[in-house]
Computed example of a mutant assay.
Amino acid sequence: MRAFTKLEGGVLPIAAVLLAGVAAPLAVLAVVSLTARLPFGGVAWGSFSLDAYASLVYTHDFDGTRLFQLDYLRVFAHSVALAGAATAICLLLALPVALHIACSPPRRKAILLLLVTVPFWTCVVVQMYGWITLLADNGLLNQWLDKIGVTRGPLGVLYTDGATLLGLIYTFVPFMILPIYAALEDLDWHIVEAALDLGATGLIALRDVVVPCCRAGIAAGVGLVFVPALGTCVVSDLLGGNRSMMLGNLVAFQFADGRNWPLGAAMAFALLGAMLAGLVARRIVLSMRGRVGARYEFA
């Protein structure tokens, strides 16, 4: 009982911080999303309306006809495509890097982990301006390629989806490497040695032993990369510009230049709801697979 009381006393401050830092802002945002908009921007507190959520689905033509809102759907699909591509590439890059770090001697391992965490020491805005300097027309990369005769004239890379994808990969690949490395640290390498002794090649051992054993780290890395990449604002704004708008840019525009706080809050909650629905669907699928596997094992 005393141990439980001490544990409860240690959890209460954490719960209070989470309540103040997460639940309270979300509650305010939920109220704003259900509040009517003032004619020249701002929120009409106390006047509740579902117009913001309705604006996500349809818009009005000049004659008042309701039209299905396709623009927001395009931005959502574009954001999912870029975030999914960044997550897949980060996974392909992070798995061999994490495996190399996990198999390195302790001293080299510490140095490699330090190099992986170096990007965390610098503001994302500074990092993106560094990429702008490198990728801009007549920038460092353009000048070097012109000098060796690979290109003639401007590259045209900046302010495209490719530049945004590059920025997303650079920003979030450490979030994929570290969870996979943590999972590989707990791996019993005697299992891998046994697989190799039984005739498995290195690729087969990687596919059938190493990857399944670090599945939890991969899942954590995918979540840590895909979700922030889907709602990013700085990377797509600085490297993509108006040609590569993502959901984060759309939400930020509604709160800033658009002066439509209820619509911005509704967009944020729609994104949150889509992510929660995806997580629930994943849990349901995994639960159904577990039940089917248990039935076959019992049979």
Rank of each mutant, 00 (worst) to 15 (best):
A88I: 14
I111M: 13
L114R: 03
D51K: 12
A81T: 04
V31H: 00
G42F: 10
F40R: 13
I132E: 09
V97M: 15
V43L: 07
V124C: 04
V116D: 10
G46F: 05
D137R: 13
H100V: 13
I132V: 15
R74W: 11
C90M: 07
P119G: 08
G46H: 06
S47T: 09
I148T: 11
A136G: 12
P96I: 09
W121R: 04
L73D: 00
V118H: 02
L113Y: 00
L114I: 04
A27T: 14
D137G: 10
T122K: 14
V118N: 02
G130F: 09
L29N: 03
V125R: 02
R107K: 13
A81Q: 07
A102K: 05
A102D: 05
P25T: 05
L141Q: 04
P96G: 11
G130N: 04
Y58C: 08
D137S: 13
D137L: 11
Q69L: 02
V32S: 09
F120T: 04
Y129M: 13
A30C: 11
D51I: 03
A27H: 06
A85I: 10
L91N: 02
N138M: 05
Y58I: 00
I148N: 07
A23Q: 01
S104L: 03
G46D: 09
S79N: 06
R107Y: 08
Q143K: 14
G64W: 08
A86P: 02
P154E: 08
Y53N: 06
G46M: 07
A44V: 03
G149K: 10
L50E: 01
R37H: 08
P119I: 02
D137Y: 10
A52R: 11
F120M: 13
L115A: 11
D51E: 15
G64I: 08
S49F: 06
A77F: 09
Y53A: 06
P105Y: 00
G130H: 04
L140G: 02
A110C: 00
D137F: 11
L67M: 12
A30S: 13
L50W: 12
T65Q: 14
T35Q: 12
F48Y: 15
